[in-house]
């Protein structure tokens, strides 16, 4: 089995947040694109290559944390992420969303995706959904004010055929 850790790479593909010490909390913002790539920048799966999600997680800068609400746990207390793929048209994988309560943690996932529905080469896209979490601004050093931090999502996948470059 080929195992690749596919992660967001580059500012356009990462969710992010802007530090704002004038408020108590800020919201995590969706990535603009959200393509998942391997370490060499390759990200296209060959047509009909099936895969297994082995684990996943989200990297978060040191010192920042989700602001947990005092009410019972709900979606705003979690990173709610989705995974979808593109071939010629964007099609959601089902179930596409997952609630992920921790940052900087590799969570075992273990789900098999039969990609016989993909008609051509495809690639994976991940992002947070609209119910994005809040990030606490309490006890954040003033030096970090107004800085932007990126929080890449990674998915570790096992698959059969080597990844290929995206045709230009």
């Amino acid at each position: 089995m080929l195992i690749d850790i596919l992660a967001h790479e580059g500012t356009a593909d990462c969710p992010y947040f802007d530090v704002d010490l004038s408020v108590d909390r800020v919201q995590l913002q969706k990535a603009t694109i959200g393509i998942l790539k391997d370490t060499t920048g390759q990200f296209k799966f060959q047509a009909k290559d099936n895969f297994i999600i082995i684990s996943m997680g989200i990297r978060f800068p040191l010192g920042f944390e989700i602001e947990y609400e005092e009410t019972s746990a709900n979606a705003t207390n979690c990173f709610t992420m989705f995974l979808s793929y593109y071939d010629n048209a964007k099609r959601p994988l089902s179930p596409a969303t997952i609630w992920f309560p921790w940052s900087n943690y590799e969570m075992s996932y273990g789900r098999y995706f039969d990609m016989s529905i993909a008609l051509t080469d495809f690639y994976l896209v991940s992002n947070i959904v609209d119910e994005r979490p809040y990030i606490s601004m309490l006890n954040i050093p003033v030096e970090l004010d107004e800085k932007r931090y990126y929080t890449p999502i990674f998915w570790k996948v096992g698959h059969t055929l080597p990844l290929i470059a995206l045709p230009s």
Partner: peptide
Amino acid sequence: DQTAALVGVT
């Protein structure tokens, strides 16, 4: 078919 157990088997 390629079942989950066969992912990675070329």
